[in-house]
Every structure is written in structure tokens, then in C-alpha cells.
Design a binder for these strands. Structure first.
Lengths: 354, 354
DNA sequence: CCATGGATTGTTAGCGCTCACAATGACGTC
DNA sequence: GACGTCATTGTGAGCGCTAACAATCCATGG
């Protein structure tokens, strides 16, 4: 620490110290084959001595690559989006990309457009938009940007390359499970109207009932929160004894509220009413009773999204037709299972099949 | 779209089209005052026509500023870290910075060092490390990096500028609440040994009991997960009737497991055993029974962290002595409140004091 | 002994922008 | 009418790196 430099050292500084040209330093750093071992060692010593680090901006300017991807997410600790975010970062890192995130409280054309502009000015080479609201999907389709964008959670209908867990299938698994257990009819607490995933879950539920020749009851609607589930649960409790024996709730948090409302109304789960959720948040296994639910594999979502985005960036895949669907799976627990002994069953090891 | 350019347009291209110099274009984009309105309009028209966007790397190289901050987080959907992450991004954006995140499954010297290198190569001007594990704190103190780093959740003991919620205070609020309610002694389910926050919570609990002249029982230990809480709860249930009437659990998820174990053991909450958690996750209000817990204000953590980091970056604050503590608050619900009517009480509106 | 070619290193020219300064023009002042 | 002043615009020089090409060295073989 003799020379307290104001400016960090440059490649030229290192080259001078090592007695080589800056280009040789660049070769060493770039793992170029044709550098004599002795030279390489000299350079590395100089780098170490000066604490040199390559300047990101200069490098990016010369290579025209920032190796940075952008992610637009909604500012929510909801299990699904948060898990997806982590999975995306991990997958991107594995490919040598850094991830810049912008999280939005509301996803509208304006906020989304602003977020994309921001990321664009931040030099990202491509963007993943975790955009489950319908408004966002439309916005995405109409917005112009100089890089490819992959949508996650938008459903497969949109005019945008997308990666999705097959929500309809998940809902079919849930609803079918209840029918198979002998329930005559399955009620439904849906998610917010403007979420595509909520709509898909409702559609899957409806289709399953239709195919079974059952008239679907009017679905209730919540906003994903436990509180909205609680309120809906109070209403549902009023139908017990009038044909309600099974409910498919569009996510686990609302299911938690439903469970509480039923309990307070003196309705037993699963003896009186069976409940299925969606998401398999870490808490679900410990609800009262442990919740049967649909698990989504977010790591896979992350990996496939990044892979698709890179494909689009390299022009390997045409933008028009990329739609990837991922299968969810049913996790059966005590909230739909009145017979077996509960604790050992509910505490099944995490080793469910992938 | 007549000319399908391979290269995106440059400032010089825009300048040519507008009939001005590239510098004038730069002035328009930089909101420089001394540009004639007419000229500005011409330039803006050209920009729009060509779909021009400033090149991030060139700009960053010339200004020596990337306006990007880095965040190192652990890959977890735990409520606290995830909320902090969002809060950080929001606060950074408000200051005109973009945020690049690296999330790590394990925080060790190696992984942390790699993460910092990565961010460094990504051109960040400063880093926030959400590093609640002790191992991480030590790593942070010994690692050298060319930018300032602010630690979050490391406790105030470390040799690093840091921002923390006052965990000891939170634990005191929780434990004191139970003592004030008439419990003679308070058991404790602690978090993982290598988390500073867990240690602080345990210390706060112990200090409160000490001051009350109560011998602290041996604390149990969990890993934050509901499952570990469940197992501890089974053990705790064995002590009911032998003096155990109150438990302070180090986080809400474990408290969920404890509640379930107690319920299964035929122990009533709160009549037989009162339970207090920590975090106030959104689900807590809907546990059976609704959970008394300690709320941490993560938005404030985010804002203060970014503010501190920017101060360090501008040299306004010396690195040595920056320690910021944020007060948590107790949220009382039915798990410690046997008397009042439950539903209206438990469903208190969110308008608790800030 | 010199030509040949591969390995190794150096030189030069940008990448696209901002900064500092120079140049220009319009206007008012003495 | 010459000069100073301000607003406006242009010019040139980097920022620190990589890519393309040029130069050098050395061993090999005819």
C-alpha cells in the first residue's frame, strides 16, 4: 500500500509493471492459449500486486456485451414470484450472466414501460418479465424494446415468448383428486380476476367438473391473501350441510384463511370439508390440518426461462412461437385425507419425486 | 422501418439526421439548459425516428459511473431476507441506481468472495450484503474489495458498516410481554447457531429473564423451518404441567410448527401455553391461533442501507463507525391472549402504528 | 545455412460516449 | 462602431478495453 492511487490501476499500468504490452495482460485475463507460462506468471504477479480488476464498462464497450440480463418482478413476497426470482438469478449466473432486477408494486403499461427503459439504459441484453397480471401481458406485447423479452407466468395465450407452469393441469389434478375421493361437487375460491394464472386455475377446475358432468358452483374470489381466504371461508362455512364438502382454493395462503374460518365455524377439515390449495409454500405442511396442494417447480421455470431468453438473444429461436409449459404435481396431505394416521403421513420426507 | 440496421444507431447517427453535432444530442439527453428549443425539438424528433437509446457502456466508461449497486443475498424465500431484497431495490431505484443481485445457497468465505468478485466485474459501485450468518460477517471483514460494502442483518458487532433491526430489543419485547401477562418463566426455541440474529434474540430473551430474577431454561434449537419447530414443539409438549406455560420462538415459521405440535399433543394455545413468534409474516395472523409476534420494518432497513451505502460511496461517512439500528415492534394476537373475543381482535386492521 | 511456419508478443484502431474548451452569433454598452 | 458578454453550438481528446493485424522469435528441415 505504498502508492495511494486516486484512480484504480488500468491494464496499461499492469502491463508496465510486468514489462509487457497491455494486450498481453488482456490475453492472460482472457485465458488465451498462446502466452508463455513465464509471461503469464509475471503478469499475474503484477495484477495481484496492484490489486488490478478489469474495468467493466471499457470491456463492455469494446465487446458490445454487458453479460447482464434484466428481470422485472412484482414487489411481493408471494412464494411463487420470489422463488422464481431466485431461480432465475441462479440459472443466469450459471450461464455467466449477471441479473439486474426491477420490482414493481403495480404492473401497468406505464410502470412496465418505465422498468424496461430503465433496464435498457442499464445495458441489459435481454429481459425476463415475471408478469402474472393480464394487464402486464398486454403491455408487454405492445411495448417496443431493443432486446428480447421472455414472459413468465403470463399463460400461454399471450403474443410473447413465455414459460409457464401448466396451471390448468394443476387445477385438474386438484379437482380430480377431490372427485376421486368421492366428493360430488367441488367449490372454488379463485384468485384475483386480472391474474392469468388465477383464470387458468379456474378454467382447469371448471373443465374437470364439466367433464365429470357436474355443474360448477359459482366461484368465490379472493386476492391471494390469507385475509381474503378467511372472508371467503366464512361464506363457504354457510354452505356446509347444503352440499359443500370440498373446496379447491387457488393458493395456499388463501387456503390458510379458509381453514381458519372453517375451524371457527365449527366445520372440521377434512371430515366435513376437504380443502386443496395451490403452490406448496413451505408452511403448508404445517397448517391445521396439513394442506393438500399443487407444487410448482420454480427452479425448472428459472432454468427454462433463461435458456429460452439466451436462445432468443442468439437468434436460435424465432420470437414468434416460443411457448414452454412445465408440469406441476399434486402433493396429498391431511386436508383431503380423513383416514390414515396423520402425523407420520403429513410429515412425509421432502423426497417427493421431481 | 426502412433501414434495417445491424448496429443500433449511435449518437453520431442521430446528430447527422438532426443536422447538429453529437455533443448537442448529448446535451439534449442530459437536459442541459443551453439548448435552443427549436434545436432540442429537432434532436428529439431524430431520436424518436431512429429509436435511438444511449449506449450504457460508452456512457459508463466516459463518466466512470455505472450507477449500479450490488446485493448479495441468500437464496431463500424466508420472509425477512426476501422483503429486505425488494426494499433495497426500491430504495436504490429511488436514488437512480440499478441493482444487480447474486443469491447464494451457502454463505462462506469462498462463495461470498466469488459473489463480490462477480459483482465487481459487473461494475457495481457498492454492495449491500444481506448476511445474517456469522460466517458471512467474518468473511466480509477480511475480504478486500474496491467498493464499499454495507452488511444487513449481521448484528452490530461486526467490523463492517451495518444496518440491523434491533433483535435484542425485539426479544425483550416478546419475553417481557409474556412475563407481564403473568407467566413465571419463558421457554425459548432458538434459531440456528450460526445466525447472528438468532443469537441476539436468544441474548435478549436471556437478559430479560435474568433481570426478572428468573432462571432461563435451556433453550431448544431449530433451523427456522416449520418442521424443526414441530419437532421442538413435541419436546416442549412434554414439559407442559412441569412449569412450561410460555414459549418465545425465534421466528414465525418455527412457531407454526410448535403450534401444530402442541395442538396434536392436546395442549391448548394460549390457555395452556402461550406462544410468541418473530417476523410477523403475512400468514401469522391466520395461524391457529393467530400468532403474537415481533414485526420488523424491512422497508426502513432497505432505505437506511442504501442511504448508508451512498454515504460511504461519496465518502461522506467514514467506513469505520457506521452502525444503524432499527426498532422492531410487538404485535399482540391471540396466541398470548386468552381473554378477549378472538376473531375481531385477531383481525385487527393492518393500521398498527409505524 | 537459410527458408518456413507456428508460437508469442506488440501496435494500432476503434467501441460510443462525455468533458473541457474553442468557436460562433446576437445583443447591448460606452 | 469597437468591444464585452452571454447563449448556443462545435471540436478534439480521452475513458480502458478488445480485435485485427503486424512483428518478432525460435525450431525445424531441405
Amino acid at each position: 500500500m505504498t502508492q495511494a492511487q486516486l484512480r484504480p490501476p488500468t491494464m496499461a499500468d499492469v502491463a508496465r509493471l510486468a514489462g509487457v504490452s497491455h494486450q498481453t495482460v488482456s490475453r492472460v485475463l482472457g485465458d488465451h492459449p498462446n502466452v508463455r507460462d513465464e509471461t503469464r506468471a509475471k503478469v499475474l504477479r503484477a495484477i495481484d500486486e496492484m490489486g488490478y480488476r478489469r474495468n467493466f464498462s471499457a470491456r463492455a464497450l469494446a465487446t458490445r456485451r454487458t453479460r447482464t440480463l434484466g428481470v422485472v418482478a412484482s414487489n411481493t413476497t408471494l412464494y411463487g414470484p420470489a422463488s422464481t426470482l431466485f431461480a432465475l438469478e441462479e440459472a443466469a449466473r450459471a450461464e455467466g450472466y449477471l441479473v439486474s432486477t426491477v420490482s414493481l408494486r403495480r404492473l401497468t403499461v406505464e410502470t412496465l414501460s418505465e422498468a424496461l427503459d430503465r433496464l435498457s439504459e442499464g445495458g441489459v441484453e435481454g429481459v425476463i418479465a415475471i408478469a402474472p397480471q393480464r394487464s402486464a401481458v398486454e403491455a408487454l406485447a405492445e411495448l417496443r424494446h431493443p432486446f428480447p423479452v421472455v414472459a413468465v407466468g403470463t399463460g400461454s395465450g399471450a403474443e410473447v415468448p413465455s414459460v409457464n407452469v401448466d396451471q390448468q393441469l394443476g387445477a385438474r389434478l386438484a379437482t380430480g383428486h377431490l372427485l376421486a375421493a368421492g366428493h360430488r361437487r367441488v367449490w372454488h375460491l379463485a384468485g384475483p380476476e386480472d391474474w392469468q394464472e388465477a383464470a387458468d386455475r379456474t378454467a382447469g377446475w371448471r373443465a374437470t367438473l364439466d367433464e365429470a358432468g357436474v355443474e360448477p358452483p359459482l366461484p368465490l374470489r379472493g386476492d391471494w391473501s390469507p385475509l381474503s381466504g378467511y372472508r371467503a371461508g366464512q361464506e363457504l362455512a354457510g354452505w356446509v350441510g347444503r352440499g359443500l364438502t370440498a373446496v379447491f382454493v387457488a393458493n395456499d395462503q388463501m387456503a390458510l384463511g379458509v381453514l381458519r374460518a372453517l375451524r371457527e365455524a365449527g366445520v372440521r377439515t377434512p371430515q366435513d370439508v376437504a380443502v386443496v390449495g395451490f403452490d406448496d409454500i413451505p408452511e403448508s405442511e404445517f397448517f391445521a390440518p396439513p394442506l393438500t396442494t399443487v407444487r410448482q417447480d420454480f427452479s425448472t421455470v428459472g432454468e427454462r426461462s433463461i435458456a429460452l431468453l439466451l436462445d432468443l438473444m442468439e437468434g436460435r429461436t424465432p420470437t414468434g412461437t416460443a411457448r414452454i409449459a412445465i408440469e406441476p404435481q399434486l402433493v396429498v396431505r391431511a386436508s383431503t385425507f380423513p383416514y390414515g394416521p396423520q402425523p407420520p403421513y403429513a410429515l412425509q420426507p421432502e423426497g417427493a419425486p421431481d
